Amino acid sequence: MTATSRPSAHEIAEGPRTRIREGTLEVGAEPPTRAEPAAESGVERATVRQACAPCAKRAG
């Protein structure tokens, strides 16, 4: 991601995975709301929803 571009849904989906690997987010912890990563990344909540869809399917 460059300074002027916004992250893709795939890049946003990597955020929680990275945090779990780094130990800053525990497995099974309550995930952040869609608004939190949207604000951090400068994207719309719809992009975050798209990023979360594969995880939601696996959890369901």
Rank of each mutant, 00 (worst) to 15 (best):
residue 1 M to C: 06
residue 1 M to F: 06
residue 2 T to R: 09
residue 3 A to L: 08
residue 4 T to S: 11
residue 4 T to C: 06
residue 5 S to Y: 03
residue 5 S to K: 06
residue 5 S to N: 07
residue 5 S to T: 10
residue 5 S to V: 05
residue 6 R to Y: 05
residue 6 R to A: 12
residue 6 R to K: 15
residue 6 R to V: 06
residue 7 P to G: 05
residue 7 P to E: 03
residue 7 P to I: 02
residue 7 P to C: 05
residue 7 P to M: 03
residue 7 P to S: 06
residue 9 A to F: 04
residue 9 A to V: 04
residue 12 I to G: 04
residue 13 A to E: 04
residue 13 A to L: 07
residue 14 E to G: 04
residue 15 G to Q: 08
residue 15 G to E: 07
residue 15 G to I: 13
residue 15 G to R: 10
residue 16 P to F: 02
residue 16 P to V: 02
residue 17 R to L: 12
residue 18 T to S: 13
residue 18 T to D: 13
residue 19 R to F: 08
residue 19 R to Y: 09
residue 20 I to A: 13
residue 22 E to S: 14
residue 22 E to I: 12
residue 23 G to D: 14
residue 24 T to L: 10
residue 26 E to L: 14
residue 26 E to F: 12
residue 26 E to H: 13
residue 27 V to A: 15
residue 27 V to Y: 14
residue 27 V to I: 14
residue 28 G to M: 12
residue 28 G to E: 12
residue 28 G to R: 10
residue 29 A to G: 13
residue 29 A to Y: 09
residue 29 A to V: 11
residue 30 E to D: 10
residue 31 P to V: 01
residue 32 P to R: 04
residue 32 P to Y: 03
residue 32 P to D: 04
residue 32 P to A: 04
residue 33 T to P: 09
residue 33 T to M: 07
residue 34 R to V: 05
residue 34 R to F: 04
residue 35 A to N: 02
residue 35 A to P: 01
residue 35 A to C: 00
residue 36 E to D: 10
residue 36 E to G: 02
residue 36 E to S: 05
residue 36 E to V: 04
residue 37 P to V: 04
residue 38 A to M: 00
residue 39 A to L: 07
residue 39 A to T: 08
residue 40 E to W: 09
residue 40 E to P: 00
residue 41 S to L: 09
residue 42 G to T: 03
residue 45 R to K: 10
residue 45 R to E: 15
residue 45 R to I: 11
residue 46 A to V: 07
residue 47 T to P: 04
residue 47 T to Q: 02
residue 48 V to N: 00
residue 48 V to H: 00
residue 48 V to K: 01
residue 49 R to L: 09
residue 50 Q to T: 14
residue 50 Q to L: 14
residue 50 Q to N: 14
residue 50 Q to F: 06
residue 50 Q to V: 13
residue 51 A to L: 00
residue 52 C to T: 12
residue 52 C to H: 07
residue 52 C to Y: 09
residue 53 A to P: 06
residue 53 A to L: 11
residue 53 A to M: 08
residue 54 P to A: 01
residue 55 C to A: 15
residue 56 A to I: 08
residue 56 A to P: 01
residue 57 K to H: 08
residue 57 K to L: 07
residue 58 R to E: 12
residue 59 A to R: 11
residue 60 G to V: 11
residue 60 G to E: 11
residue 60 G to Y: 11
